[in-house]
């Protein structure tokens, strides 16, 4: 019988990462005390997660900031040493075989670049070709593909630091695919980009996955990325996997719910939110049809379950009875999906 490591390109079992952080004190005197402090606290960034990936699949890792997505990726790429559990990537233990593992993987950290900041991007491609020992013909063929997909040649002579974020991200993704790795890790590849560039990047990723059968792990907190790219979704919260499976089941939540976000002229009324919740609850009596909450930015958000009550009804009721100042309607956010899962939406 073949072991898991032979069947799956990535196998993760009970993976844990703990960080030791100095408890910092406040103020100047606190800073001086910190000089001699041994007061550490341990935080658990990744808390015993297990999963394995099939060859050629695109898996979306979703979760709020600080959920442990990036830390997981850093352990899979050999940058960080796990505190506990096991990881194998293409049969190798990443931290112990960092350089060897690096040959078979490609990585894009959305908030960083592996391109030479001061040089035209073509120079970075050339060096990467040499570092990964890509044969000439393969390099030419690969570049031709990229050129067909996103017209990369136009950017060849552009200095990386003069690129827009979207152009740079395209180049970084191209750079990660250059040596035709078996597995690609994309950490927030669409962060901070506008819709048209996001679409372009999603198309590029999909095409490369189709052409090369590359296994792709994608982390994001943009649900739309996942909907465009993945069939399988892994939802992580506080270092644990709370859902791993078909996107379709999660989509039913994503599709049914939308968020109505509002600001009001008079927000000083005490217990405004419970009052609003009570009023809406009486108005739209189906259980769980509307959920009122307050966001960090001061907006009031009303999550509407649209198969029970129509968004228009809620909107018109609220605007008729309350001094609404501003309105936004948004797709449900990752945080709300997670809350729904905790509340049992998938069971």
């Amino acid at each position: 019988m073949m072991s898991d490591q032979e069947i799956f390109p990535v196998v993760v079992k009970d993976l844990t990462k703990k960080f030791r952080i100095l408890n910092r004190r406040e103020g100047l005197s606190g800073a001086f005390k910190d000089l001699f402090s041994r007061d550490y606290k341990t935080t658990t960034a990744v808390d015993g997660i297990s999963f394995s990936l099939n060859e050629g699949e695109i898996v979306g890792f979703v979760g709020p900031n600080g959920a442990g997505k990036s830390t997981t990726i850093k352990m899979l790429t050999g940058v960080l040493e796990p505190t506990g559990g096991t990881v194998t990537v293409n049969g190798l233990v990443p931290f112990r075989n960092r350089a060897k593992n690096a040959k078979n993987i490609g990585v894009v950290f959305g908030q960083r670049t592996q391109l030479w900041w001061d040089l035209p991007v073509i120079e970075s491609f050339k060096v990467l070709k040499e570092i990964y020992k890509v044969p000439d013909e393969q390099y030419e063929a690969t570049m031709a593909t990229f050129n067909e997909l996103v017209n990369i040649r136009e950017l060849y002579n552009k200095q990386v630091r003069t690129m827009s974020l979207g152009q740079r991200m395209l180049c970084d993704i191209v750079a990660a695919f250059l040596h035709n790795p078996k597995i690609i890790f994309l950490d927030e590849p669409t962060i901070g980009l506008d819709i048209s560039v996001k679409t372009k990047i999603r198309t590029l990723i999909l095409e490369l996955n189709r052409l090369r059968k590359t296994t792709i792990i994608l982390t994001t907190h943009d649900i739309a990325d996942i909907e465009a790219l993945c069939r399988r979704i892994v939802i992580i919260d506080k270092g644990r996997i709370i859902y791993d499976g078909d996107l379709a089941r999660v989509s039913s939540i994503i599709g049914d719910f939308r968020t109505l976000r509002l600001t009001f002229d008079q927000v000083h009324v005490p217990d405004f939110i419970p009052a609003l919740q009570k009023d809406l609850g009486e108005q739209f009596s189906a259980e769980g049809a509307v959920t009122v909450g307050e966001d960090e930015d001061g907006w009031i958000s009303i999550i509407v379950q649209e198969d029970l009550v129509s968004m228009i009804d809620v909107l018109s009721h609220v605007s008729r009875n309350y001094p609404v100042k501003d309105i936004k309607i948004e797709e449900i956010r990752t945080e709300d999906v997670i809350r729904k899962i905790y509340e049992g939406a998938l069971t």
């Binding site: 790429t77 050999g78 940058v79 350089a99 060897k100 993987i105 570092i131």
Partner: peptide, 13 residues
């Protein structure tokens, strides 16, 4: 600033 990750993901010493 964490940019060391960019070096560590390369198959180099």
């Amino acid at each position: 600033e964490g940019s060391i990750t960019q070096t560590l993901i390369k198959p180099t010493d």
